[in-house]
Design a protein around this nucleic acid. Structure first.
Length: 466
RNA sequence: UCCCCUGUAGCUCAGUUGGUUAGAGCGGUGGACUGUUAAUCCAUGUGUCGUCUGUUCAAAUCAGACCAGGGGAGCCA
């Protein structure tokens, strides 16, 4: 026996006139003196609840049905009928209501049938999935994740499970969380007095990964088209609405490809997943459009239909210098762009996503491929109106002598990158890739302003509840 | 980590130029009405006023520190 989902009932997948059972939680109960009660039963399978009509001649009507409040769990059995009321196509004429669990004290049940602030809901991490916005976000997040996997699968990419625990402390993308089983009260010491990590679980220092990129490059240099999709960890003390200490990242890596190929892939990918989202979750997206951000649908449709603008860093600097707008941080060639600059380019100058590319080498990572001009690297950021950088990527430096020169310039020890250098020593190929912050994608797609509301259990500085 | 703002009932907030008894809406509860739709109408309870320290005859109100949340910045995805 399988459990019936309310989404299937509301979609008309069950015959009218026959008896079915649904399970779920009460959203609201309304009593009518005509001798019936209306129950809105919600199981999270879709945005809408199903309405059950409960006659007062059920033997537990007074003892239980009339005591149902928001949040109580029930199994409702009854005849599926076309609804004479407005607001729903089908409803259930209940023949039995089994209460699975009451709400202890309706007065203090946090998820009362009323509007709550997102800040309050965040403190109720174990219950917020029961709200409209919590459920809708969760379903959208799932749809986007599934669409990403499907996109890469259809294009022949292989999903690579890169490690979460890394023995390399030089991934270069940020502060790392240490992984250790040493007794912090009684640390083993070397003769010099340093902590003796040879005694630690892995026999060396280990950390949580900040990016799967370096690892996935090794598989790109064997299977050609690959990607990782998994959690990454950054111990940065970032207190903003667009950073998390634990976030999910999609990182495709493509062999025999240049920067323009990575940019094309990113554009195609975003269009694909937004199209899938609009097709598969019209109910949730209508909610976001109405209650969260009145511009989401236009924005997503715009991304789907418009070509992404490609712009060189050097041209962007010129645009910023000549736009007549006063910036707090002055612009000149060689400086890293600030939020205000990125926002101007994406929101005002272009009015949509923009691919910014070919940055000065001195403000970018060692592994990015040096351009022929000798001063820029083949790096790109995709900036989205509203949230800023959503994708960062590059063509990787595949020439061993150039890579070694870059490592030396940045005072990095080639020995730390031995296996990474091997990829360039044994049958090197041009290859490119990028990283997409998955929670930023969810935020962009829903209009939710704080990234902490796009992941079920957010991890941020001083925040690890639940 | 830096700057600005906020922290009062289950929730969203008002208020307090320091002085006996702290306010509203929503939610909850009780009732009326109703094939209802977060319905409507009537009635009704609720508070270590973020924590600690200080100033004072007196602090929820003033000051300091700390904690938490929001907005902006930096780091980035």
């Amino acid at each position: 026996m399988s459990v019936i989902s309310i989404t299937d009932v509301l979609a008309g997948k069950y015959p009218v006139g026959e008896s079915i059972s649904v399970h779920g939680w009460i959203r609201t109960r309304r009593d009518s003196k005509a001798g019936i009660s209306f129950l809105a039963v919600h199981d999270g399978s879709c945005f809408d609840a199903i309405q059950a009509i409960v006659p007062n001649d059920l033997n537990n009507y007074e003892s239980e049905v009339q005591k149902l409040t928001t949040g109580c769990s029930v199994k409702v059995t009854g005849i599926l009928v076309e609804s004479p009321g407005k607001g729903q196509a089908f409803e259930i004429q209940a023949t039995a209501v089994e209460v699975l669990g009451f709400v202890e004290d309706p007065d203090t049940y946090p998820m009362a049938a009323k509007r709550h602030s997102l800040e309050f809901l965040r403190e109720q991490g174990h219950l917020r999935a029961r709200t409209n916005i919590g459920g809708a976000t969760t379903r959208v997040r799932n749809t986007l994740a599934q669409a990403l996997h499907r996109f890469f699968h259809e294009k022949g990419y292989y999903w690579i499970s890169t490690p979460l625990i890394t023995g390399s402390d030089c991934e270069g993308a940020g502060e790392m969380f240490r992984v250790s089983t040493l007794d912090m009260e009684n640390l083993p010491r070397t003769e010099k007095g340093d902590i003796d990590f040879a005694e630690d679980f892995f026999g060396k220092e280990t950390f949580l990964t900040v990016s799967g990129q370096l690892n996935v490059e090794t598989y790109a240099c064997a299977l050609s088209k690959v990607y990782t999709f998994g959690p990454t960890f950054r111990a940065e003390n970032s207190n903003t609405s667009r950073h998390l200490a634990e976030f999910w990242m999609v990182e495709p890596e493509l062999a025999f490809a240049h920067l323009c190929d990575a940019a094309d892939l990113a554009e195609e990918m975003l269009k694909y997943v937004f199209k899938a989202l609009l097709e598969e979750r019209p109910d949730d997206m209508a909610f976001f459009q109405q209650r969260v951000d009145k511009t989401v649908l236009d924005r997503l449709n715009n991304v789907i239909s418009a070509d992404f603008v490609r712009m060189d860093y050097t041209d962007a600097i010129e645009i910023l210098q000549n736009c007549g707008k006063k910036f707090e941080n002055p612009v000149s060639w060689g400086v890293d762009l600030n939020s205000e600059h990125e926002r101007y380019l994406a929101e005002e100058h272009v009015g949509g996503p923009v691919v910014l590319q070919n940055y000065p080498k001195d403000i970018k990572s060692f592994y990015m491929r040096l351009n022929d001009d000798g001063k820029t690297v083949a790096a790109m950021d995709i900036l989205a109106p509203g949230i800023g950088e959503i994708i960062g990527g590059s063509e990787r430096e595949e020439r061993i002598e150039v890579l070694d020169k870059r490592l030396a310039e940045m005072n990095l020890d080639p020995a730390d990158y031995a296996w990474y250098r091997d990829l360039r020593r044994y049958g090197t190929v041009p290859h490119s890739g990028f990283g997409l912050g998955f929670e930023r994608l969810v935020a962009y797609a829903t209009g939710i302003g704080n990234i902490r509301d796009t992941i079920p259990f957010p991890r941020a500085p001083k925040t690890a509840a639940f």
